[in-house]
Design a protein around this nucleic acid. Sequence first.
DNA 1: CTGAAAGCGCTTACAG
DNA 2: CTGAAAGCGCTTACAG
Lengths: 348, 348
Amino acid sequence: MPSEPGPRAPRIRDVAARAGVGVGTVSRVLNDSPGVSEDTRARVQAVMDELGYRPSPTARNLSLGRTQTLGVVAPFFTSPSVVERLRGIDDVIGRSGYDLTLFNVETPDQRHDAIARFARRHRLDGVAIISLPLRDAEVRALNRDGLPAVLIDVHHRSLPHVAIDDVRGGRLAGEHLLAAGHERVAFIGDLADNPFGFSSSERRLRGLREALGAAGLIVADEHVKRAPYGREAAGRLTRELLQLRRPPTAIFAASDVQAFGVMDAAARAGLAIPGDLSVVGFDDIELAAAIGLTTVRQPLRESGRRGAALLLRALEGVGTGHGGELPELELVERRTVGRIERAQAVGA
Amino acid sequence: MPSEPGPRAPRIRDVAARAGVGVGTVSRVLNDSPGVSEDTRARVQAVMDELGYRPSPTARNLSLGRTQTLGVVAPFFTSPSVVERLRGIDDVIGRSGYDLTLFNVETPDQRHDAIARFARRHRLDGVAIISLPLRDAEVRALNRDGLPAVLIDVHHRSLPHVAIDDVRGGRLAGEHLLAAGHERVAFIGDLADNPFGFSSSERRLRGLREALGAAGLIVADEHVKRAPYGREAAGRLTRELLQLRRPPTAIFAASDVQAFGVMDAAARAGLAIPGDLSVVGFDDIELAAAIGLTTVRQPLRESGRRGAALLLRALEGVGTGHGGELPELELVERRTVGRIERAQAVGA
DNA sequence: CTGAAAGCGCTTACAG
DNA sequence: CTGAAAGCGCTTACAG
């Protein structure tokens, strides 16, 4: 232990005694409640300063029936895109007086734990859930407990949420590739039936198919590859694609992290990007720019901000409004897509 | 609001009444305390299940004088290296029964806020502080309040901490570059006198100097550049270095993120890496491998695990033991360092 | 304007 | 083995 706890911290009653007032009065100056003469207020304040008094949030919360802390449930909270959303959440929660408690979910079990853990609003005043579609039973539990909740990166008919149009994002990627002359486009994404219920990957694939379809093209079945989220897994899928008799000329990855896996595998296979293979990612995380990855930008940080703002509003009992429109998705053109006819490297 | 709060959640007294026992007894079965007949225990348990009873952590904590939550104070908690450490912390705290509250520090003000906010152990049972050297007054405040604290990525003579030998890390980078024939090695790091007090950057520079010094070489003053942490800033410094009359043949960056800035600037300047310029980073964050960056690996995630374990031990009142030795630093050779004599690109 | 008291929902000696 | 009661440190009607 650093040292002896020392004399116990002063409580409200110590302040009251020393100031010669009742605890109620101290509480009132603490809370800037009206009905305290300027005189006593000053005196009490002085004693608080002198004693270095700090009210106990725990006691306060018990009395008030709240916890003053908000939870964030996120799968793989250390993945770059989740981190960006977290940053957005912190932008607004950080200065709100609420504490932020993290519930990391990396296994289906943890998912269950997390949700059970904050149930009954005994622990949290509200919760933001990132990228995890909720089951009906879970939504009912939240409602039953009156626990305000918002969803980020997930659509839901009865809960406030902020989400993007993934299908459109996939279409943007497809159209860009099409414009560059690609006709054999592959897709690398998450498992369609993953234990967390992520579904954005499939929607992005749908968008890609729509874009190609509008040009009379299809995404060949052998060109659609799925694996658990991650860079290595994406690299593995890429190797499979490259060994096909008719390998794709371009790969659209459901996330930048997966796109990096593609680039990695291509490099190891001795392929130049974009000379031999083009790749488009999704997210536009910070490193995409550094690497020069062409990708579909989604407003990650802003989604966190909106979600947090929505949560704060729900806390005040303001309707279940949805997040409003997020900034549009856009394709950010960098250095990983080459024109297919000329078969020559573009840019550096 | 999702819906009406519904009937209020059952309290311990409701369970007691329905089970025909006193609240003390319910509390005892709740806490697996001895001295409850198997009979009553079963009966009480049944009622708890029936009512869906969940004890209030707030009330429990007030009664017990603890909060059951641990804090993590981190600068830029969304930077890759901090995220890795957080992940390590979560590895061990996640299954400990403690909640994790985040205090993000991106400005000197926030630093002050964070430390004031959890003072007096009213809010937290313990705290892990990442990369922020503590001032003496802050350490005294922690001690006075009896708030267990551990430091990660910071050395301290009286607080449990886990840190690496940055000087040695710098030396590893220098020796590797030397072995490849480089004699004009530049350094890009954080501001020596930054508002947060980071100091690892300077120690890494010292190590670099030692290595070159041992070979009778020096790091030219004009080859030492510092800026606030970040990719763009590192890119800016790189451009300055490249415009020198005698530009360096290699750059050692104090972190991988900064190394990416170097690579970015080099690419924009039309320089090939490692053909025209070599670069060595520090950290070995996940993406370093994807990009093929040669770097000094430090055990980021493990540092979080050790720090958290230390904190847990401090919570149990077990001495202030230091983190023990972390896995050794090692230089991970990839594709960004070329041999200087032959002046030819190495690898792909 | 201000104090005494009850209440928030637990835990834990203290007596049976 | 078990219950009644005090206590954790606040807040907030309720009476002055």
